[in-house]
Design a protein around this nucleic acid. Structure first.
Lengths: 128, 128
DNA sequence: TTTGCCTTTGACGTGCGGGTCAAGGGTTAC
DNA sequence: GTAACCCTTGACCCGCACGTCAAAGGCAAA
């Protein structure tokens, strides 16, 4: 597959695939003799996973961390979740929880602004 | 007052004052013979109002709209709020309500992401 | 062989509220 | 007079996930 087909199969654009490669989310794609990137179905699956992680609010940095996790590296062939405390190799959940904190903080901040705005429209803050 | 003093009095920086002027939130300041901007207390009050509006989440565009309102133009000398329906000259409240809608939409969006993330950390979405 | 879409890299744009230089001149206190 | 700040404009920088454009070459069908 060339980059356009792979991108379409993963529901995104060639630009995004090059971007993911550049930022270390995808390994450098293999190339033809003339330098064009080639992709297989495993690459497409990985891109889909990347997009899923991004779509729930993780940053590129976060996703890179998640993809370093063994459970993620075996794309498709999921390792069973390891619940034992000594088996703490899933940084993925730690990353997600950190992002949850950030998200909650942002939600609180916006809710605070909203309350101030509500008060403003009630009391005429703009005129004072 | 020179720009630095005016900025300090309003709790901001010279850069911000030039920025507000450039974006039409402040009228062009009067200048000395050598081109330096001069400010009076009314300017400082206006800057304070601008900052207040920005701090509650209005955009520069919003603020420009609010400042076009008569009730705001008479800085300090507040016009009494006009409750009669035919007296709808306060676009300020309309602007604020529009911004409230935007804010609420953003809060909902982030809350949706948060819920997906919570589900993810529960079910191990990253591994699928 | 030509046509037309595909790919490559690199550089710049997007939104937003300013921050941060840089080069040059102004103003003020001592 | 001179040191120590202050001011001017213009241009680029920030985060973030790519979009867009440009110039140049690749690939498949007619």
């Amino acid at each position: 597959m060339r980059i356009g087909d792979a991108a379409a199969a993963a529901g995104t654009t060639p630009r995004a695939l090059r971007f993911y490669e550049q930022r270390g989310l995808l390994p450098p794609a293999s190339r033809t003799a003339t330098g064009q990137r080639r992709y297989g179905p495993r690459d497409v699956a990985r891109v889909r996973l990347i997009r899923r992680l991004l779509s729930v609010g993780l940053t590129v940095e976060d996703v890179r961390g998640c993809l370093a996790d063994p459970v993620v590296v075996f794309d498709g062939d999921t390792l069973p979740p390891c619940d034992a405390p000594e088996c703490a190799f899933t940084q993925t959940s730690a990353i997600i929880e950190r992002r949850l904190d950030v998200l909650n903080a942002e939600i609180s901040r916006l809710a605070g602004l909203r309350d101030q705005l509500r008060e403003a429209v009630g009391h005429g803050v703009a005129a004072r």
